[in-house]
Amino acid sequence: MSRIDESREFIPVRIAVLTVSDSRSLAEDRSGDTLVARIEAAGHLLAARHILPDDRAQIAAQLRAWVADPEVDVVISTGGTGLTGRDVSVEAHRDVYEKEIDAFGTVFTIVSMQKIGTSAVQSRACGGVAGGTYLFALPGSPGACRDAWDEILVKQLDYRHKPCNFVEIFPRLEEHKRRK
């Protein structure tokens, strides 16, 4: 099973948080606050934080800007992963991904099933990689953000996590671009 290898040094990751909402301001952003608190408590760095409306083009543009920013290693968005007409975060993320992390959505569903039962089928949480940056789209509830962070991301974004983690493969995410 997974464990922390105390012989390895912790490596802080620079994480940007994007809240997708037509109605929330920063003062009312409980899901974003949940993520920021957990990111900082884990020892990572908050690289940026924004709120955008449920607009596919705007979301994708912000994701691309952060992918291009060398000061951002990971992007986590919250909101817009449901089934309604305004829920377009997943589509925006997939517009940007070079590779999708299919198992992220599967593992998130398993975690969610333990908390909310079959209502977990209504979430389309997803993860991917673009330009050497990890991107994750989470549902807009604080509970879903807690679950994704506490059960998946805190472990995978910790270099000490064994048997493997996202941080240790950062240097290899763009190895295909190196000259041979």
Rank of each mutant, 00 (worst) to 15 (best):
D29A: 09
D29S: 05
G32I: 08
D33Q: 11
A37N: 10
A37T: 13
A37L: 06
I39F: 14
I39D: 09
E40V: 11
A41Y: 15
A42T: 12
G43S: 09
L45Y: 15
A48P: 07
A48W: 15
A48G: 07
I51T: 07
P53E: 04
A57F: 11
A65F: 07
A65Y: 06
W66M: 02
A68I: 00
P70S: 05
V72M: 12
D73F: 10
V75N: 08
S77I: 01
S77C: 04
T78W: 03
G79M: 03
G80N: 09
T81Q: 02
G82T: 04
G82M: 02
L83C: 08
R86V: 00
D87N: 05
V88F: 12
S89N: 10
V90T: 14
A92E: 09
H93A: 15
H93D: 08
Y97R: 14
Y97K: 15
Y97L: 11
Y97T: 12
Y97W: 08
E100K: 11
D102R: 14
F104E: 06
T106N: 10
V107P: 09
V107Y: 15
I110A: 15
V111R: 10
S112V: 08
K115N: 11
T118A: 14
T118Y: 09
A120F: 00
V121A: 15
V121F: 09
Q122M: 14
S123T: 12
A130L: 03
A130K: 04
